[in-house]
């Protein structure tokens, strides 16, 4: 599990540029599935045939990132966000471009000196990337406009916790890969969607789900932790690391199906897998678009609690990862009865 995870999170593949991760996932599951294809949006769709109804598992392959849009006369690279970034978190982070150039996100000192550090001034208009180029020409020789970038932040094993960029949502990709590799028996006709462009608006999953028309949908994604996890954590967020996978109740994209949740709770209880409930005041997952596919799909989401979301140091708990794998495995083996 750790090896797959390390491999996946260290691949750079922001929204819309998922091919590297898509290839890695494909290579690790191809022998274990009946069919595998990539659709026009880049979604990787694997099929493990079964006699029951269609059950779709979804994890998104993309990560948040940046795109180079302009190189100024000093050779600084100006970037725009791909997915949800809070610019305040960005100054002095290292990033790596699609073709290997590295740099750090710089930020005008004049802005810092104004009232000490007026963080409100920090925006993609005032940030730039310094790739060490002495001139515009040097920069242009290293970077092409339109080249994407992601955090330059490798996987770290902290003992009981793992830390890296792109845990969101490669942790779920790794879980699904592990599930596919180890699943012995299953009832349902299983579809695994490794979706693209989640971070820019649940794009890939919507199309994939439309094509598959599943009866049940389960999105696997990460979720935030709050006041019970870190001292000044968000008051409105109850989730914490180490308390097991989070069964989604609601977020901005979806009210998860009540009956499906209850069934999953029963499965977890039977297998003595700890779990927590997720109520998230912000954000959404692919569950939101799977749910409203055509005439509707019984949908929920299982989340891996993750600290410092959308930062270069997203952190998950090893036990949570193991318990989530146990849970999705138990789900995949059984027949869903609502």
């Amino acid at each position: 599990m750790k090896d797959i995870l390390k491999q996946f999170v260290e691949i750079s593949a922001p929204s819309g540029r998922e091919e590297p991760i898509q290839k890695a996932i494909r290579a690790s599951i191809q022998p274990y599935v009946d069919e595998i294809r990539t659709d026009s949006l880049g979604n990787l769709i694997a099929h493990k045939k079964g006699n029951g109804k269609k059950l779709l598992f979804d994890a998104h392959m993309d990560e948040i990132g940046f795109v180079a849009t302009y190189i100024d006369d000093h050779g600084f690279v100006h970037i725009e966000p791909l997915g949800g970034h809070n610019p305040v978190n960005l100054p002095f982070q290292r990033i790596c471009f699609e073709y290997g150039s590295k740099g750090t996100i710089g930020f005008e000192s004049e802005i810092l000196s104004k009232n000490g550090a007026d963080r409100k001034e920090v925006s993609f208009d005032t940030l730039y990337v310094d790739i060490g180029a002495r001139s515009k020409n040097e920069a242009l020789s290293k970077i092409r406009i339109g080249e994407t970038a992601t955090y330059d932040s490798p996987f770290v094993d902290l003992g009981n916790r793992y830390m890296s960029k792109a845990m969101d949502d490669r942790i779920a990709c790794a879980l699904l890969v592990k599930l596919i590799q180890t699943l012995q028996t299953h009832h349902h006709d299983l579809y695994f969607v490794f979706a693209t462009q989640e971070e820019v608006g649940l794009v890939g999953s919507k199309a994939a789900s439309y094509g598959i028309e599943p009866d049940f949908g389960i999105a696997l994604d990460v979720t935030a932790t709050g006041f019970e996890d870190t001292p000044k954590g968000l008051k409105r967020v109850p989730m914490k690391l180490g308390a097991g996978p989070a069964i989604k109740i609601q977020d901005r994209s979806m009210i998860a199906n009540h009956n499906l949740n209850q069934w999953i709770q029963t499965v977890a209880d039977q297998n003595r897998i700890p779990y927590q409930f997720e109520v998230l005041p912000f954000g959404g997952t692919n569950g939101g678009v799977i749910q409203t596919t055509k005439s509707g799909v019984y949908t929920t989401c299982i989340s891996i609690p993750t600290r410092y979301l959308h930062s270069p140091s997203e952190m998950v708990d090893v036990m949570d990862v193991q318990n989530t794998l146990q849970l999705v495995k138990a789900i995949a083996e059984k027949e869903i009865v609502l």
Binding site: G226, K235, R236, V237, P238, I249, Q250, V279, P281
Partner: peptide, 15 residues
């Protein structure tokens, strides 16, 4: 609303 958290003394935060 839904219960967002159970606090000390059984008070409930809501979402």
């Amino acid at each position: 609303f839904v219960v967002g958290a159970i606090l000390e003394n059984g008070f409930l935060r809501v979402e």
